[in-house]
Amino acid sequence: MKKYLIPIIGILLLSCFSACEEYSYVYEVNAADVDAITANKNKLKTTSQYVAVMYVNLFQKPLSANQLYDISRVILSIGDKELAHEILISNFMNEPDVILPSNESMRADIPLFLDDVYERFLIRAPSEAEKEFFIRYIEARPDVTPEMVYFAFALSNEYQFY
């Protein structure tokens, strides 16, 4: 038995080394770095930037410099910035000239609505996973309105960055 042991070990080692041999495949396509869809957003907006951009997104017109200054001061006066933003958006949503799509148009073509809202707020197209989530979410909840979707996007962390 012992006389076969050494050859067997030798064969095993040989097969192991041959399995570890690396092969190089060339597919002849251009190399590309793959990043997450939000990877380049790493700069936090200032309060003024956040307010100015949000105002344009909701009203489709710019905020005056005086109003921007005043609103930035108001936000500074509240410790919980997320709460401050929430209250500010709630006030904006009460303005008569806020521009929102109708519920009917949103539900008539939810994917199109999502493409628009992602482009408007996050300056990008939604990933398939994101689109899938929101389509299911909106379809399953008849009470969800475009206003609520806009509200969520305006509050989101990604919207705070650029």
Partner: peptide, 17 residues
């Protein structure tokens, strides 16, 4: 509902932002 949608968006952003 607003918080749920925001939470989803934040989770999507969490890994990079």
């Amino acid at each position: 509902s607003i918080y749920e949608m925001k939470e989803f968006l934040d989770n999507s952003f969490y890994t990079t932002g």
